[in-house]
Amino acid sequence: MKSGSQLEKILTAGHFAFTGELGPPRGTNIEAIKKKAAPLKGMVDAVNITDNQTAVVRMSSMAASLFAIAEGLEPNYQMVCRDRNRLAMQGDILGAYAHGIRNMLCLSGDHQQFGDHPQSKGVFDIDSTQLINMVKNMRDEGTFLNGQEIDEPPKMFIGAAANPFAEPFEWRIFRLAKKIQAGADFVQTQCVFNMERMREWIKRANDMGLSEKAYILPGVTPMKSLGMARYMKAKVPGMDVPDYVIDRLKGVDKKDQADEGIKMACEQIAEFKEMKGVAGVHLMAIEWEHKVPEIAERAGMLPRPQV
């Protein structure tokens, strides 16, 4: 075991993993965290705690991860390169591990221009691939980025993100390969809607042996409405929403669109369970945490295995 996290145990035991997501509050509202955490308990193996996602200030991902632990969840502590330099990052990784955090997802981060402080200075001292490698060396070599020894190194289960849909498509798999070579143990992808392209991407990952070196968890986001699908297609960079997704939601009554969205997500999960090279699913039920038990039930993900 690299970190001994629940997520690592589930994956190494060969179970189909199921991870969720929790966005920290825009303030000190602990009750809001508890409210979002409650429906996730027992439904997922780990919960991504986002780090100032979309470049909007929220409670720090480390602090919210600690509240998640207190609520009986296992956090997947997200860290972006936008807000911290290599000193702050390493310091936070030490603190996170000392507090019991065992999973980390290493990201570049959305550009600050998108967020609520567009005037801010983006740090980007190192990039996500370099961050992955830094966390790996902290764990496996017991050294900081500068090569100096760590007094009791942090042992994280290291996650990376991948977007199978961005251009140039032929390069994406090589970028994934770089992140895995840098030290990623597991990979969570951008929300998947274009299944044809996903199948092709996973096939390439299999052909290159990448799915044997890291656990790949495709991202699944249930559409809440036709409006959400249209918004994601038109406005969210790097998102690939095919017309057949829009058409299918268009084909049902407005009041049934949310249910249809969940149905589509469950169909995707069913296909991923059978897909070679896929080790689990990352469910991003955006501001829809209370629906996770229903989705988990309908997707046949319950009960979660105990390892």
């Binding site: 550009h111 983006g122 790097g238």
Partner: peptide, 19 residues
């Protein structure tokens, strides 16, 4: 825009930057 040394990031948008 992110000064990446191992890019492109997931926000790359059909040849354009996410910003």
């Amino acid at each position: 825009a992110k000064s990446l040394f191992n890019g492109p990031c997931g926000g790359t948008n059909q040849g354009s930057c996410e910003i």
